[in-house]
Nucleic acid binder design. Structure first.
Lengths: 149, 149
DNA sequence: ATACCAGATAAGAACCATTCTTGTCAAGAC
DNA sequence: GTCTTGACAAGAATGGTTCTTATCTGGTAT
C-alpha cells in the first residue's frame, strides 16, 4: 500500500488466447463484432470463453491498439486501425467500409453554454455495391427499414 | 401531432394508451428511452405493457412524428422533434441536448465507388454543465471511461 | 344498430450483446 | 520457493429489444 505510486498501470501479458485474437485483428478490415471474433477464435481455441474476448478487447482499447466503433446499432464493432477516420455501414448487410476522415469535425456554431465537448462521431449509412446489385434494391430510394439479421 | 393520412398504409388508431404516450412525448426535450417512457406511462396506465410502448413508438416513427436517435450506446432514445438537428450527450449523466444542425453534412471527398450513401449521423459527446461542476471533474481532460449506470 | 376484422393490447417468453461472479491457474516479482 | 497480480473458463445475470399468443376493441360495412 505504501509504494502505490510505483505502478504505471497493468501490463499486457501475452497469452496464446490473446495472441490468437491479435492475429485475427491485425490488418483486419472487416470491423468484426465481439461475437464474430469469439466464433472465429473459438474454432482454434475451443476452451476460449466470451469473457476472454471481451477482456482482451478492453485491454487493447485501453492500450490504444484498438478502437470500438458504434456505427452498428445492434452491437459494438472493433477496428484495429486507430488513426482518425470515419465509417460507412451498409444498411442491408451490415458491412462497414472505411472512409478518410472528413477534414474538419464540424463544430456547431451554437454550442450550449457550459458544455465541454469531448469528441464527435460522424457515421455514414448507405448500400454497398454488392447489396445495391441485388434485385429489389434498384428502385428503392431508401431501405433503412430493412434490418439485417 | 397531426392525424394520419387517409389512404396508404394502416392508419394510426388513437387509444388511451397511445394518447398518454403522445402527451408525454409532445414537446419533450429529454430524449427519453423506451424504458423511461414505459416507467412514466405505467404509473397512469398500470396495465400498459412494454410491447405497447414499442409498438406505438414504431408507429410514430413510421408516421414521421418521432425520431429514434442512437447517440446513447446503451439504448435507443426518442425525439419528438423531427426537424434536422444533431445531439450532444453528456458522458457522465447521459442527458442529451439538441444542437442546431451543422450547416453541411460533410460528405467524404473520397467515397468508395459503388456505394449509395443514404444518410449521415453526427453526434457530439461532452460533459453537461451540471456534471462539470461535480467535484472530481474539474481537472479531468476526458472522462469517457466513466460509464453512467 | 350489429357483426366483422384489422389492428391494438397485455403478458410474458425469447433473444442477444454485454457484464459480472466465482474459482482456478500461471507468470513474473521477491 | 512463495506471493501477488492478472488471465482464464464457465456460466449466471443484466438489460434492452423483439416476438408470440391470446384477447380485445374501434371503425367500417352491412
Amino acid at each position: 500500500m505504501k509504494n502505490a505510486v510505483k505502478k504505471p498501470g497493468p501490463r499486457f501479458r501475452m497469452t496464446p488466447q490473446r495472441a490468437g485474437i491479435l492475429r485475427l485483428l491485425e490488418g483486419n478490415k472487416s470491423h468484426p463484432s465481439a461475437g464474430d471474433i469469439y466464433r472465429r477464435i473459438h474454432k482454434k481455441f475451443p476452451g476460449l470463453s466470451f469473457a476472454t474476448v471481451y477482456n482482451t478487447l478492453q485491454s487493447l482499447i485501453a492500450l490504444g491498439e484498438l478502437a470500438e466503433i458504434r456505427i452498428d446499432p445492434r452491437r459494438s464493432r472493433f477496428d484495429p486501425a486507430t488513426t482518425a477516420h470515419s465509417h460507412l455501414m451498409c444498411v442491408e448487410c451490415g458491412s462497414i467500409a472505411d472512409l478518410k476522415a472528413p477534414p474538419q469535425p464540424p463544430l456547431p456554431k451554437e454550442r450550449p453554454s457550459g458544455y465541454r465537448i469531448l469528441r464527435c462521431n460522424i457515421e455514414f449509412y448507405g448500400v454497398c455495391p454488392a447489396c445495391g446489385k441485388k434485385p429489389g434494391n434498384k428502385e428503392k430510394k431508401s431501405c433503412m427499414k430493412t434490418r439485417q439479421k
